[in-house]
Simulated assay, not measured.
Amino acid sequence: MKLAILSDLHANRQATEAVWEHATQQGCERTVLLGDYVDYGADPVWVLDFVQQRVQEGAIALKGNHDDAIRHEGSHNMGEHVQESLVWTRQQLSSAHVAFIESLPLVAELDDCHFAHANLHAPSQWGYLDGRMEAVRSMQVSAHPFAFCGHMHQPCLYHLSAAGKSGEFSPVDGTPIILSPMRRWLAIPGSVGQPRDGNPAACYAMFDTSSKQLTFHRVPYDHERAAQRIIDAGLPMFLAQRLRDGR
Rank of each mutant, 00 (worst) to 15 (best):
V38P: 02
R54E: 14
L157M: 14
K2G: 04
L235F: 05
C113A: 11
Y128Q: 05
V19E: 03
I70S: 08
S138H: 02
A108R: 05
M152D: 08
S211W: 00
L34F: 11
L110E: 13
L62V: 10
D8F: 11
I178S: 13
P123C: 09
M237Y: 08
S94C: 05
K165D: 10
P145V: 04
G167E: 08
H121R: 10
V32D: 01
L157V: 15
C113G: 01
I230V: 09
I178K: 15
S103T: 09
R218A: 13
Q52G: 01
Y128C: 07
Q26I: 01
H76W: 08
G198Y: 05
V82A: 13
Y204A: 05
W185F: 04
M152K: 11
S103Q: 13
V45Y: 07
G58P: 09
S166R: 05
E134M: 08
D222Q: 03
F169C: 07
H97F: 03
A147I: 02
L3E: 03
A108W: 02
A201C: 06
P145S: 06
D67Q: 14
V192F: 09
D173S: 14
G74K: 14
H66G: 06
Q56S: 13
Y221I: 02
S7N: 02
M139H: 03
G79M: 07
L33V: 14
E224Q: 14
G190A: 09
S75M: 03
V82Y: 11
I5Y: 00
A147P: 00
A205Y: 01
R196M: 13
Y221M: 03
R218G: 07
L62M: 09
A15D: 02
M237R: 14
I177Y: 07
Y37V: 07
D43H: 05
L129I: 15
